[in-house]
Amino acid sequence: MSYPDGRILLNSQREGQVSRFRFWVLLAVPLAAILFQAYVPLFFQFLRYLEVPMLVVVYFAIMQRSQISGLLIGAVVGLAQDSLTTEPLGMYGIAKTLVGYFAASVGLRLDVDHPVIRLLLCFFFYIVHKFFYWVILRAMFGKPLPFDIQNTLVLALLNAVVGVSLFHFLDKLREPA
C-alpha cells in the first residue's frame, strides 16, 4: 500500500488513503489488547513491558486519519485500562487520548503504510505516552517518580519493533478499498 514513488511525506491531506474497519474489529482488537495486557504477563513476565493497547490506539488513529476518531479510541481504551488498575480512572485515559489525537494528526501528513514510518511512530508515541502518564502522576497525585529515560528508550524500541509486526497483522483486518 506504500506510495509508488517511495515518498514518505504527503503533499496534502487529501492524498492520504483512509482505511476503514468493520465494527467488530474496532471492538475486538482493543479488547484483545487489554486482555493481553492483563492476562499474558501472568505466564510470561517479560511481556508486561509491551504496551499493546497504546500500539492499537496508534494504529487505528493513523490508519483512520481522523483526529476525533483517534482521540475517542484512545479515551475508551485508556479508561478501560484504568478500570483494571487500582489507580483513579483517567490516568491512562488522558495519556491515550492525547496519543490518539497526535497520532492521527501526524498520520495525515505521512505515508503510514511505510514500515520505517510505523517504526518511528511507535517509538515516538511510546515515549509520548510514558511522558504524559508520568506528568499526570506528578501533577495530579504529587508522586515523586523519576522519569527513567534510558529504560524508556529501550522499551520504546522494543514496542516499536513489536508494533511494526502488529500493524502488519492488523492491516489484514482492513476493509478492502
Partner: peptide
C-alpha cells in the same frame, strides 16, 4: 477526564460503573 480524576481524588471515591463495565467485558 480531568474532572473525573479530580472528583475521584477529592472525594476519595471510585467511579464504580465504568470499572464494572470493563471487568464484566474482560
Amino acid at each position: 477526564q480531568l474532572v473525573l480524576l479530580a472528583v475521584q481524588v477529592k472525594n476519595d471515591q471510585d467511579v464504580r460503573f465504568i470499572r464494572i463495565w470493563t471487568i464484566s467485558a474482560v
